[in-house]
Design a protein around this nucleic acid. Sequence first.
DNA 1: TTAATGCTTCGATCGCGATCGAAGTGTGAG
DNA 2: CTCACACTTCGATCGCGATCGAAGCATTAA
Lengths: 242, 242
Amino acid sequence: MKEGPDIALIGSLIGDPARANMLTALTSGKALTATELAGTAGITLQTASSHLSKLEAGGLITQRKQGRHRYFTLADDDVGLMIEGLMGFAAYRGFTRHRTGPKDPALRKARVCYNHLAGDYGVRMLDSLIAEEVISGAGDKLQLTASGAGKMTALGIDLPALTRSRRPVCRTCLDWSERRSHLAGSLGQALLTLFLDKGWAKREPDSRAVRFTGTGEKEFANLFPLPAPSAIERRHEQTVDA
Amino acid sequence: MKEGPDIALIGSLIGDPARANMLTALTSGKALTATELAGTAGITLQTASSHLSKLEAGGLITQRKQGRHRYFTLADDDVGLMIEGLMGFAAYRGFTRHRTGPKDPALRKARVCYNHLAGDYGVRMLDSLIAEEVISGAGDKLQLTASGAGKMTALGIDLPALTRSRRPVCRTCLDWSERRSHLAGSLGQALLTLFLDKGWAKREPDSRAVRFTGTGEKEFANLFPLPAPSAIERRHEQTVDA
DNA sequence: TTAATGCTTCGATCGCGATCGAAGTGTGAG
DNA sequence: CTCACACTTCGATCGCGATCGAAGCATTAA
């Protein structure tokens, strides 16, 4: 009755629709102001402020003062991963609010998951990275290989900067639309930033969706080729059941 | 504001302390009656009944009538995995109710996670299975190898029966005490059952803790040897940060 | 300085849901 | 059949928290 961690606290924080909306909006990775969050949640500024202070007290978000604005973000990767995990569970159960709107296909194809790429493209990328032995790993332990480190550096990624931070470089994140893992961690973040910087992909405004340009599609397919058919078959087996 | 799955519904279900207590109790994998659950949650039978019907309507639990009792269990593996995930998040944040009681070390060493083995022993087992190439996998895709299938059958596990079901045979589950993956899925369940059947381990009453016997410790160490030192080093790197 | 914007705090309202007593239903025991 | 037990349903209470209006505080602009 009293052993173990307290789930109820976190559950109650997420349990309120207004707060859930705010958290979902923040999962886009953008820093949002209190006014913006109040808008997306459909509540007044006062109530939003109350909710935000509770979320902050619960350690789910942090605020950054900048001028007369206050920008709110998720506290760290873990919060994003947890929320994405809950969304996956909810989606699988069919708990969707406004059943699969028009933007949904775009979200399933490619979207931002806090700070890295998710959706079909995110899953395909991790599959390819593992098949090409850029990343090795079993279970949830992912690791950049020596040859992989070279490839990433060649792409223009500053690996020393990534390893200098205290955050893990490679990490798995469960994708709620694909129900498979994609790449999170500082490398996942760096890769998404790369795509955006090179102009291969652009973020849709006011959405988590990511739209790849024509050349972006080509470059992506070139950089992350699909695994061999045998691996695809195995993948299919895994996806069918579950 | 209205795209994506509804996490608030699930959050509110978990957000009530009484319900959270019930769910935590059910994570032990045991089927419990309404009266037992009311006891662990510290509420009367009437309120417990109300909570239980809500949890069932939310798809988190199912009931099975047997005589004049009604046995409640978690709906499926997914629910257990999600709750275990939340517990991991909460534990990492230091959200514990009655801070780390005496039973805690036992729980960290070996415990039941819905229907499979978790804790230090669970993580070590998966590490060993992968090192011994009984299971291959990258990311969250785990697969039994041909040689591994032989070993498991030799242990007395009825593999055809496992594959016949619609459930995945191998699956990862994030361990909240170790913050690493251990083995879930029907194979994970079968292995735990094996340990208990052979008398290598026993369940503590009214707890999730699993206590290994002397011979059980030996057999376990023999069956699941620790990976080579190099792998241990790598593991340490992964554990330190995160 | 004054005015405007962004946000927090205070105070009051109000509704939903958690809780329990009491009565009702169903099952097994004697 | 009668009684005991397990549980559900009904009904009423009651408190917490979500909500918003109004005022207060901070920062920037003019």
